[in-house]
Lab assay of single mutants.
Amino acid sequence: DSWHDTVDGIELELHGADEELLKLAKELLKRGVSEEEVRRIIEELLK
């Protein structure tokens, strides 16, 4: 799946992010949310 590559990229960027955020990112990508949107959501949550 192409979203796996996206998640791997996000995981590299979010090496400090907790497991729950990564699960959320994967779930959003699986549901068709764009990579940009996922990054934006996670950045908001990390604030």
Rank of each mutant, 00 (worst) to 15 (best):
E36H: 08
V7T: 12
S2N: 14
L29N: 01
R40S: 08
I42N: 00
L29G: 01
L29Y: 03
E11W: 15
I10G: 07
G16K: 05
A25M: 07
D5E: 08
E44S: 07
L12E: 05
S34F: 02
V33H: 14
K23C: 03
R39L: 09
L29I: 09
I41C: 01
V33K: 05
L28Q: 01
K47C: 03
L28S: 00
S2D: 12
L24A: 02
V38S: 00
V38H: 00
D1K: 02
E37D: 09
D8C: 04
K30W: 06
L24G: 00
E37C: 04
L29A: 02
H15L: 15
V38R: 01
W3R: 02
R40A: 11
R39K: 10
E35G: 10
E43H: 11
D8M: 15
E43I: 11
K26E: 14
L21P: 01
G32P: 01
A17Q: 09
G9V: 11
L45S: 03
R40N: 06
R40H: 08
I42L: 06
I10M: 13
E36L: 09
D5Y: 03
L45W: 10
H4N: 12
K23A: 13
I41V: 03
G16Q: 04
H4W: 11
D8W: 02
D18W: 12
D18F: 10
K30C: 06
H15D: 13
L29Q: 02
G9E: 13
G16C: 02
D18T: 15
K26R: 12
E11F: 13
E11L: 15
K47L: 12
E43R: 11
G32N: 01
L28T: 00
E19Y: 08
L22C: 06
S34K: 08
H15A: 13
R40Y: 07
R39W: 09
E43N: 09
L28E: 00
W3F: 12
E36A: 11
K26D: 08
T6Q: 13
I42A: 01
V33W: 14
K23G: 03
D1C: 01
E13K: 04
V38I: 06
S2Y: 11
I42M: 03
E20C: 03
V38E: 00
E36I: 07
E27V: 04
D18N: 14
L46F: 05
H4T: 09
V38K: 01
T6E: 13
H4A: 10
L12V: 08
K26F: 08
L14D: 04
I41A: 02
K26Y: 15
L21G: 01
R39F: 08
V38A: 02
T6P: 10
K30R: 11
E11V: 15
G32C: 02
D8A: 14
E13I: 11
H15G: 12
I10C: 02
A25L: 05
E19H: 12
